[in-house]
Simulated assay, not measured.
Amino acid sequence: MKNSTFIAELHTKLGAPSSEAVESLRLLKAFLKLAPGQRIEVIEMVERLNAESRSETDLPLS
């Protein structure tokens, strides 16, 4: 996206992206550069971490 007019028009219509959106796009770009086997490993790791996080928050507070 080297066309500054196009970028300016997008900025006017959509506003500035949040830092979270920019970081998400960077992570997606890096993810897509991985080999398919590495992508599967990353997905499995994220799912495992998510499951562990949920199990910790589901514990009773007492």
Rank of each mutant, 00 (worst) to 15 (best):
M1G: 13
M1H: 10
K2V: 08
K2Q: 12
K2S: 13
N3Y: 06
S4Y: 10
T5N: 08
F6G: 01
I7L: 12
I7K: 07
A8N: 12
E9K: 14
L10Q: 13
L10F: 12
H11D: 09
H11G: 05
H11F: 07
T12P: 00
T12K: 15
K13R: 15
K13S: 06
L14S: 01
L14P: 00
P17D: 03
P17G: 02
S18H: 04
S18P: 01
S18W: 07
S18D: 05
S19G: 04
E20V: 08
A21D: 12
A21H: 06
V22F: 05
V22H: 01
V22C: 04
E23Q: 09
E23K: 05
S24I: 06
S24N: 11
L25Y: 05
L25N: 01
L25K: 02
L25I: 13
R26D: 09
R26F: 06
R26M: 11
L28E: 07
L28H: 04
L28V: 05
L28R: 05
L28N: 02
A30C: 02
A30R: 09
A30N: 07
A30F: 05
F31Q: 03
F31D: 02
K33V: 08
K33M: 09
K33H: 06
K33S: 09
K33N: 10
L34W: 03
A35H: 08
P36I: 00
P36D: 09
G37C: 00
G37E: 14
G37S: 10
G37H: 08
G37V: 01
G37N: 12
Q38A: 08
R39F: 02
R39Q: 15
R39E: 04
R39D: 01
I40R: 08
I40E: 14
E41I: 02
E41F: 04
M45A: 11
M45C: 01
M45Q: 14
M45T: 11
M45P: 00
E47R: 14
E47Y: 10
E47F: 07
E47K: 15
L49D: 04
L49S: 03
L49T: 02
L49H: 06
L49V: 05
N50Q: 14
N50R: 15
E52H: 10
E52L: 13
E52I: 09
E52T: 08
S53Y: 15
R54Y: 08
R54H: 10
R54D: 07
S55H: 07
S55N: 07
E56L: 15
T57H: 13
T57F: 15
D58K: 10
D58N: 12
L59D: 01
P60T: 10
P60G: 06
P60S: 13
L61R: 12
S62V: 10
S62P: 03
S62C: 04
S62K: 07
